[in-house]
Design a protein around this nucleic acid. Structure first.
Lengths: 132, 132
DNA sequence: CCATCTATTGACAAATTGCAGTTAGACAGG
DNA sequence: CCTGTCTAACTGCAATTTGTCAATAGATGG
């Protein structure tokens, strides 16, 4: 009945989803850059990018895809081929999507550096504390 | 009049504030781990951790400090010494704060790895596209 | 006494998220 | 035929988080 891919009643270490969400859009866009795909497949493939399926509600993925379509980064159409099961909405990256992907990755790279610095500073602090 | 540190009317490259916010709490906590401090000082020191003051409304910092106090990671008291200017609320890290800092940094490290993977996969893809 | 800098707080609209539910085709087993 | 399960996509809403603006207030310099 649920129609979604998520263990029920499990909280999923509270607020780290938030961080993961930041890379979700870029991740989806990258996968679409690799090849056209539909929501359900993307959702399953997200594990290859470090996501934990048990903790990601499928509605989030569909919603993000919709949003990205509205923003003009991707386009979609209903799958022509009769694959068994319900119809699939296949997404395809657009030129604007490539540009945005590049932007996003640049931003994420900055974030990565920030984390590196933060971590280094923490290690240094621990070193000082440890010696005293 | 404004009482806050922010250029007015400047949008600040739209959606990357969101990413920065993810490291804000850990950053504040780290700075407090280094030494006790008050909101205004912390705000100014944030540039040393890659934040852009022009893009961060001070109310955000104060709010986060308050939240962290409520969560039991830090404590605060009004500054006794008569430094000129208005009174300062000085924050101090608690034992629980050290623990949480460690947790947060661990989470951020995972995020860093995720970004690294994502980036690598993008570079690989560009390589393939370039050669064809 | 007026502007400016330091310092903190409050209030509210807008955006984001989590969670649960709905629809629906296909297929397998009893 | 009925039931359950898997695939697939979508909707609605309450709760949380965030962005932005405004208010307050001591001190200082002209």
């Amino acid at each position: 009945m649920p129609g979604r891919r998520r263990r029920e009643g499990i909280p999923c270490r509270p607020r780290w989803k938030r961080g993961l969400r930041l890379v979700l859009r870029p991740s989806l866009l990258l996968m679409l850059a690799e090849h056209d795909s539909h929501g359900y497949e993307l959702m399953e493939q997200l594990t290859t990018l470090g996501f934990d399926n048990e903790c990601l509600d499928s509605s989030v993925i569909y919603r993000d895809l919709r949003d990205m379509e509205e923003m003009g980064f991707i386009r979609s159409f209903w799958d022509e081929e009769d694959s068994k099961g319900p119809k699939r909405r296949v997404y395809q990256i657009k030129e604007q999507g490539w540009e945005r992907l590049e932007d996003w990755l640049e931003g994420l790279d900055q974030l990565r550096e920030q984390i590196t610095d933060l971590s280094a500073r923490y290690q240094k602090l621990k070193g000082v504390k440890g010696k005293s």
